[in-house]
């Protein structure tokens, strides 16, 4: 949690996939606190698999993942829950939870055996509600929310878990442009103001270029990683999609359809 700049997560030569099939290998990157990082790539390249591997939901095939100079696999699951929180594409199993109840579940790694919320817990829940503009919705049931609202609730829950690292799988799918930007701006604010490392997968490459500190492009061979402008200079976005269909415009940092 300390504000000092040091390596928060280091990924070295990691291969991901399943025992029968490697999806991507030789992934390496390194992130510090206060950094917002997007993982981009074409459908099926393994973005979600990488995120699930980083979140310890599935084992890596080779290489090393280190959190705060300690291997990911050396963390016990209660300890890891205080280091790393997740926002997945799957919907919460019970949509009958209220917004406040769902966010309060984020405090589980800190509460006692029966889950009693202390003052600190309540304060953290309130801060999450405030940050994600959910105060008016706190007593609403999740099934009454719009997609954008529910997404904010899920991210607020991860914030309430108060971990140095937050991983999000496609947090902007199904949202309109305004809500996409809203979510990404909130993530940026969270990373910069609360010294968090935030990694998310996305298809919004142009938004990621504008808002992220770092981008990892999964292309299946080089997997370039770096600051968006450097990646543009090195023409990495150019080869992301077949060039007869779409072309990358380096000046505007966006893709254009070939007419």
């Amino acid at each position: 949690m300390s504000g000092s700049i040091k390596n928060s997560i280091t990924v070295k030569d990691v291969a991901i996939g399943y025992i029968s099939k490697t999806i991507v290998d030789e992934i390496s990157f390194n992130l510090e606190s206060k950094e917002l990082c997007a993982i981009v790539g074409v459908n099926g390249i393994g973005k979600s698999t990488l995120l699930r591997t980083l979140g310890n939901l599935q084992p890596k095939l080779s290489g090393n993942i280190t959190l705060k100079n300690k291997y990911l696999t050396d963390y016990t699951s209660p300890k890891l829950a205080q280091e790393l929180s997740l926002v997945l594409t799957e919907q919460p199993a019970s949509k009958n939870l209220t917004v406040e109840e769902l966010i309060a579940l984020g405090r589980q790694p800190y509460t006692n055996w029966i889950g009693t919320l202390t003052k600190t817990d309540k304060k953290q829940i309130q801060e999450s509600l405030d940050t994600f503009l959910l105060n008016d919705l706190r007593h609403r049931k999740c099934h009454e929310l719009s997609d954008g609202q529910l997404q904010r609730v899920l991210i607020a829950r991860a914030m309430a878990q108060d971990t140095p690292i937050i991983l999000l799988d496609e947090p902007t799918t199904h949202l309109d442009l305004y809500h996409k930007v809203q979510i990404l701006k909130l993530l940026q604010k969270l990373a910069h103001e609360q010294q968090k490392t935030i990694i998310f997968t996305t298809h919004e490459i142009d938004l990621a270029i504008q808002l992220c500190d770092k981008i990892l492009i999964l292309d299946g061979h080089e997997n370039p990683f770096g600051e968006p402008c450097k990646l543009i200079e090195q023409k990495h976005f150019e080869h992301l999609f077949p060039s007869e269909m779409v072309q990358f415009d380096a000046k505007t940092g966006s893709f254009k359809v070939n007419k």
Binding site: P92, S94, L105
Partner: peptide, 24 residues
């Protein structure tokens, strides 16, 4: 059941979320 209260609440989010909250 009483001993499982906290885990039952975590299961309301789904198993992957429960796992990420430190539930075995």
């Amino acid at each position: 059941s009483i001993l499982s209260i906290k885990k039952l609440n975590a299961f309301l989010l789904g198993e992957n979320y429960a796992l990420s909250l430190g539930v075995s």
